[in-house]
Design a protein around this nucleic acid. Structure first.
Length: 556
DNA sequence: CATAGGACTTGGTGTAAGGATC
DNA sequence: GATCCTTACACCAAGTCCTATG
């Protein structure tokens, strides 16, 4: 059925994800290149030639020397322990104290290298670009069923030192080099199987069409499995994405019922049901993540809703003008701080007081609840409902409402885009998508202000000229000039507002993962805003299904 | 029911690419 | 045509949720 595009083909019902899969396998990290002899490592003030394996790991540390975390005890301890494993026995007996190691020549060497890379001629840069393009063409695509699809991450991560985010107990550990012998290849039996590099073997070649990945290996820091999968533009990802939003739309139809149900449950005789109901209220109202349990000491100490501890909330029966205020202060995913003070209903407040009774700060707030219990309950309320669906639903519905409220047909396109970004921002704030203010933020604001000032001067000059011309009865083209400059000025001002408001907010994550793209596509059509103003090329590729599908009257 | 493993989605940051500006 | 600036994307994780196992 070649006339069908890839969104329209029938899917199988037996859980198989594809019938045919052919690819060339991953691209491995380039082998280690030893340092030139003149670049020395010093131990206790004396130069020391390291064996290649020890030297390689030393270079990882040297490259990070400017980062604050190389001064942290845990980082240094983990690094040193793993480094020593790579040393020869002589090296091991000599190098016993990291504080006596001097990596500064290595560090300088790498800085010079990256400087040299920046100074490369156009031709050299072009050559590298072409080589990358060649690699992309050869390894960056696969055939899945009838389509050539882009692969997401066909390059295997190079070895290095694990950083992790926040206060990670494993920071500084050595992330080892991945070899063909570590890789499991997945492809269809009747495809041309990828060849391992000469003289090597794959760990395994399997033909499992119940999964979507092309290759996998086990990473040595957490022992978890990493995958090579398709790009978001692929049929298999796009369809899943579409499905996700359809689930969220089904929630829209029954969310009132679910809300009145959990409000009733606040009064339940059973503690576990009250806890479940209060947690669900938070997930719904505040768009908190589910909060799975984590193995202690293996990862940074972060929490979500179900894993909140007593120490993460404070109760204020009265605060300023408001009653029953809950203050949240905890580290969520990626150790991003969640801080919020919200008034809640009296019943929720009383329940929280009850949950806190006789507990220590480090005890679980919801001691009778976990994500598996919660999701089992949600599954009974609606087919396919899980905690994260609330985030998707509330994000998308918020965008739709905000767009309705903020957009104005008479606005100019830049003003419309400001409204769109503001709607997007409301969602990002709801989902707590924060970013560190860009290092160049102040400067770039200043630059913009300078431009605005200049434009303003230009405008008054043009206005003066227009006035003079009018007095002479020969106006027409000066009028156009004034209008043009006014428009340019307005555009700059809108840009400044947008940037200022966006200082600490990251819009990308919500746009990419939580907002039904059909809402945005419909909005663009309705208000005559070109889709390119909202989505860049990659985003348009990811949301191709929605751009194909949504009309201007689409409703989430 | 607890736990581990497995598959897949969601995250912020740094940097290179490429556009804008002088 | 060099330099400055912004944007996009690679990178590298860290979540969620489901299933199998004992």
């Amino acid at each position: 059925s070649s006339h069908l595009n890839k969104w329209e083909e029938e899917r199988s019902t037996d859980g198989s994800k594809w019938r045919f899969l052919e690819h060339k396998g991953p691209v491995f990290a380039p082998p280690y290149e030893p340092l030139p002899g003149k670049v020395k490592f010093y131990y206790d003030g004396k130069p020391m030639k390291l064996s290649a394996p020890a030297e390689e790991v030393a270079t990882f540390f040297a490259k990070m020397l400017d980062h604050e975390y190389t001064t942290k005890d845990i980082f240094r301890k983990n690094f040193f322990k793993d480094w020593r494993k790579e040393m020869t026995s002589e090296e091991k007996s000599t190098i016993t104290d990291l504080n006596k190691c001097n990596f500064s020549e290595m560090s300088e060497y790498f800085k010079a290298q990256s400087e040299a890379r920046k100074q490369m001629s156009k031709e050299e840069k072009q050559k590298i670009k072409e080589e990358n393009e060649r690699l992309l063409q050869e390894y960056g695509f696969c055939i899945m069923d009838n389509h050539k699809e882009r692969i997401g991450n066909f390059r295997i991560e190079p070895p290095g030192l694990f950083r992790g985010r926040g206060d990670h107990p494993k920071m500084g550990m050595l992330k080892r080099r991945i070899r063909p012998e570590d890789i499991i290849i997945n492809c269809s039996k009747d495809s041309k199987h990828p060849k391992p590099p000469p003289g090597t073997k794959w760990k395994e070649v399997r033909h499992d069409n119940k999964v979507t990945w092309l290759a996998s290996w086990t990473e040595n820091i957490q022992g978890s499995i990493k995958y090579i999968m398709l790009n978001p533009s692929s049929r298999i990802k796009g369809e899943k994405d579409w499905q996700k939003y359809e689930t969220a739309r089904r929630l829209k139809k029954c969310v009132d019922r679910i809300r009145s149900q959990y409000r009733d449950d606040w009064k339940s005789k059973e503690m576990r049901i009250r806890q479940r109901a209060v947690a669900l209220y938070f997930i719904d109202k505040l768009a908190l993540r589910a909060g799975n349990e984590k193995e202690e000491g293996e990862t940074a100490d972060t929490v979500g809703c179900c894993s909140l501890r007593v120490e993460h909330i404070k109760l204020y029966p009265k605060m300023d003008e408001q009653e029953y205020v809950v203050e949240f202060d905890f580290l969520g995913k990626d150790s991003i701080r969640y801080y919020n003070k919200i008034p809640v209903e009296k019943r929720v407040f009383k329940n929280l007081q009850l949950f806190l009774e006789n507990k220590q700060p480090e005890d679980d707030l919801f001691d009778r609840l976990n994500t598996s219990i919660l999701n089992k309950h949600l599954q009974e309320l609606m087919d396919g409902l899980t905690a994260k669906v609330f985030r998707t639903y509330n994000a998308s519905i918020t965008l739709q409402q905000q767009l309705k409220e903020l957009s104005c047909s008479d606005d100019s396109v830049p003003a419309k885009i400001l409204s769109y970004n503001r709607a997007n921002r409301a969602v990002a704030i709801l989902c707590n998508h924060q970013r560190a203010p860009p290092k160049t933020f102040e400067k770039s604001m200043q630059n913009l202000q300078t431009k605005i000032d200049e434009k303003q001067n230009q405008l008054s000059a043009a206005r003066k000229q227009l006035k003079a011309a009018k007095a002479d009865h020969k106006a027409s083209h000066d009028e156009k000039t004034v209008q043009r400059i006014e428009e340019q000025l307005m555009k700059l001002q809108v840009q400044a507002t947008d940037r200022e408001e966006n200082k600490q907010i990251a819009l990308g994550t919500s746009k990419l993962n939580y907002l039904d793209p059909r809402i945005s596509v419909a909005w663009c059509k309705k208000y005559g805003v070109p889709i390119e103003k909202i989505y860049n090329k990659t985003q348009r590729e990811k949301f191709a299904w929605a751009i194909d599908m949504a009309e201007k009257d689409y409703e989430f």
